[in-house]
Design a protein around this nucleic acid. Structure first.
Lengths: 340, 340
DNA sequence: GAAAGTCACGAAAACGGTTTCGTGTTGACA
DNA sequence: TGTCAACACGAAACCGTTTTCGTGACTTTC
């Protein structure tokens, strides 16, 4: 990079002190109009830009928000990022995005790097592996250091900080109710292993809806997907049962279920209804299009960044972590409809 | 944030100088074992972490790479980010991601903010609006300041810097050839307005393939999508022609075309073949699944970050911008097959 | 026993800004 | 003519770290 122009060089070149230059560039009344004009003209001509690092060091704040996501090639997380970015930008912040790739180790490392003063606060969705390990020391350390932290979607109670989540139980309930109301009797649940708490919560909603309708929950109708294995093969197993409804906790699972149903010659939604989660492009463009629970990722991102910045800017004060619950919506499309 | 522990506080507390502390923490031979142990124990106990900002200021480098994308809820850009992040991480860099949202104004602003010393270099894909305006001053300024810059996918010749692109002409050619070889005669092209150069290039490939097969290109078979209007409606127009093949320059257009074809009762791929671009989830999960040109976004991201870091780390030297062309692959799925 | 060499540490500058607190020169006023 | 305020600017500290260059005390060497 070429020799950058600094306040010092301007000062030397114009035979004034750095304080004068600094003040002149801020249009301070302390400096005579004449001097100000001279300095400003010079700075302008040479395209002077104040060095951000110096300012950050002096002000002890970076105006940067760190974001750590488990993955990104996923409609939900993409939209959350958009929401975070928009909200941050509006308040003059930038975002620094990192990925844990669902790995505990990478999460720990990334957290360490970012908490060295590079960011004013963090927004995180916890990695799968971490949820499985139940090892949250790195987060607890962060909280102890009083670095502003907001968790979203994948959160745990052990960590005392602000949280933004969807009403997963309610959403699971809503989805299952919808299928029941369409007259479905044998509804399969395609979910994550139980340590992924969003999966567990949606399952609770599913079970609640079934119990309410006096239907027994049947373990044989539930598949917990191991993402390291072939997803489709795992789902195929549940299709050996005589099911007429599928509730999948994300759109990939839903799309796979739909493909299997088609291969089996089941007509959708006449013989089998399918409902997914995450209102992404797959659900929208598949045929038939898939009914889903819209998670409103954009809103989640906005909310998360809003509470984070609030925490950053009016620190101190009595701290009582907030939990914001975003309501989810049922978006009815072609893959479900009354069977009667 | 709580009072952070610094080298200064350690020095004061232990009655030594800051230089001693700094050296002790780096295990310098200049410091006696006794003192080192004392200092290290103290630092460890209080969980001392060096302040990144101070280091960045001192070293005049941030180990951060700025990334500006037009949008993110798009499979291709998501995968590029992944590639960039992975490559950056491997070399000890972090990435700071921003979005222009296809807006010229936001692109200019973001570029300004990031070039104030917050990043060591930039990876950018140009916003639509900028391409339309043909106003690249903000990029030229960057180049003049000798801030390392790599453009990818949406690039322009005017800006002298490293570039990473797919062989768009070749890809368009490949896609069209594939349709022709399947015996298709009237192939529609669904593309972007011509100022989006990737669209224009893919069109060239399309035209080249047609000419080679002695087929006249017919303007009536080409639709340039205005993304501010209803996409599906615009595509429907071309279906008034008696087409038997569709080449769409991205997967959204392809998915829309497929939906229209189905609505018209055309069987795919028997009566009409469809081929898309970007090997995303839509193409994979739609039914029939869509044949596409895989752009290898991950590889593009990796390559981009690799040349950028090279540029950053061995600066000076004679500078001759590179252009890296990533070859694209045809991924044949259910939406195309021989019609004969 | 003086010169030279280690050892263990500190002072100070540097990175690029901002900001507080002088301070020398005016001019006005009593 | 002495006092004081206003004006226009500079010196220096500060943010947190690294690094060069001393330097005093002690040991070794001839």
């Amino acid at each position: 990079m070429r020799q950058k122009i600094t306040i010092k060089t301007i000062a030397k070149e114009l035979g004034v002190s750095t304080s004068t230059v600094s003040k002149a560039l801020k249009d301070s009344h302390e400096i005579s109009t004449e001097t100000k004009e001279k300095i400003q003209a010079y700075a302008n001509y040479y395209n002077y830009k104040p060095n951000n690092l110096a300012l950050q060091l002096r002000n002890q704040k970076t105006k940067v928000i760190g974001v750590i996501l488990p993955k990104i090639v996923h409609h939900f997380f993409s939209t959350v990022i958009m929401g975070i970015e928009e909200g941050a930008n509006k308040k003059g912040y930038n975002i620094m995005v990192c990925f844990s790739n669902e790995s505990y180790k990478k999460e720990v490392e990334t957290l360490k790097v970012l908490s060295n003063g590079s960011v004013d606060g963090l927004i995180v969705s916890i990695a799968n592996e971490t949820l499985k390990n139940k090892d949250f020391k790195h987060f607890l350390d962060l909280v102890a250091e009083e670095i502003p932290l907001v968790l979203f979607d994948r959160v745990v109670d052990e960590i005392l900080c602000d949280k933004v989540v969807v009403d997963d139980v309610g959403a699971g309930y809503k989805a299952t109710r919808h299928l029941l109301e369409n007259g479905r009797k044998k509804i399969a649940l395609i979910t994550t292993p139980n340590h992924v708490n969003v999966g567990a919560l949606r399952r609770q909603g599913y079970e609640k809806a079934l119990i309410e309708s006096y239907t027994k929950t049947d373990e044989k109708l539930i598949v917990e997907i191991d993402e390291n294995q072939d997803i489709k093969k795992q789902i195929e197993i549940v299709f050996q049962q005589d099911i007429d409804g599928v509730f999948a906790v994300n759109e990939i699972y839903a799309a796979n279920a739909m493909r299997i149903a088609k291969e089996k010659g089941l007509s959708i939604p006449e013989e089998i209804s399918i409902i997914g989660f995450t209102d992404g492009l797959i659900s929208e463009y598949s045929s038939p299009s898939i009914t889903t629970i819209a998670q409103h990722g954009f809103t989640m991102g906005q909310q998360a960044v809003e509470v984070l910045i609030e925490r950053i800017e009016k620190e101190a004060e009595a701290y009582s972590p907030k939990k914001i619950v975003i309501s989810s919506d049922l978006k009815i499309r072609e893959s479900t409809k009354p069977s009667s």
